[in-house]
Design a protein around this nucleic acid. Structure first.
Lengths: 112, 112
DNA sequence: TTATATACATAAATTTCTTATGTATGTAAA
DNA sequence: TTTACATACATAAGAAATTTATGTATATAA
């Protein structure tokens, strides 16, 4: 059922940045649920991976945060900074190249 | 020029097993050169990653080895075991699923 | 009152990879 | 002739990302 999470190592930053490129702002828990729904439950993004990744992207200046209390619970919203907007383009190009090279190496034709 | 090697974390075993599914038998150095040529120099497989990976796959019983001396140099040939033949099918299916999910998450259409 | 969902966070351990180093042979260039 | 590069293996130290486990806290449904 679930995919081999091992393979997603290294792609997490790109996934986060791309979701924020599409959604203006999102909070951590929302990101885990979004990944779950997009992959139909196949990829489960662990909190122990997500939160440190968000903190790192923020420390690098790619993300900005605003904190709100909603329904008596804390939410930390993340959005792309100017640098983040630029970086997501690079990351997506790298991901594209990566997929192309991996398909070459495994002789997997793009399925269509 | 070169791809972001970071992204290939976790894919090395699959790449090795697939090359051996196609080539009957290969030795370590040959694998590094094959990866280099397939990717046109974009992915450079380091020895520090390759040899431990080969040893691990052998220890797991997926690979078998025969050693030869060619032109006064040692060569350790690797080939798929019966278990290895089965496992490469699983690994390739996992890689296919992984690519499909990643394309979904990054809304990258397969390029064709 | 128990389990589940929401919402954040961090520490320890694991895994994989990079970088650096080591041994050894053969060939081409300076 | 000695320097660099290619061939061919191997391992150790360090870096980086992730898993697993744990913690806090609120709200709701069983």
């Amino acid at each position: 059922m679930a995919v081999n999470n091992e393979l997603f190592k290294g792609t997490l930053q790109t996934i986060i940045l791309n979701l924020l490129a599409e959604n203006e702002r999102m909070y951590g828990y929302e990101i885990t649920q979004k990944v779950k729904s997009i992959t139909q439950g196949e990829l489960l993004l662990k909190e122990g991976a997500l939160y440190p990744a968000l903190h790192k992207l923020e420390a690098e200046g790619l993300l900005e945060t605003t904190t709100e209390v909603v329904e008596n619970r804390l939410r930390k919203y993340y959005s792309l900074s100017n640098d983040g907007e630029k970086e997501v383009v690079n990351k997506l190009r790298e991901a594209k190249d990566f997929i192309a090279q991996l398909q070459l190496l495994l002789n997997l034709k793009p399925s269509f």
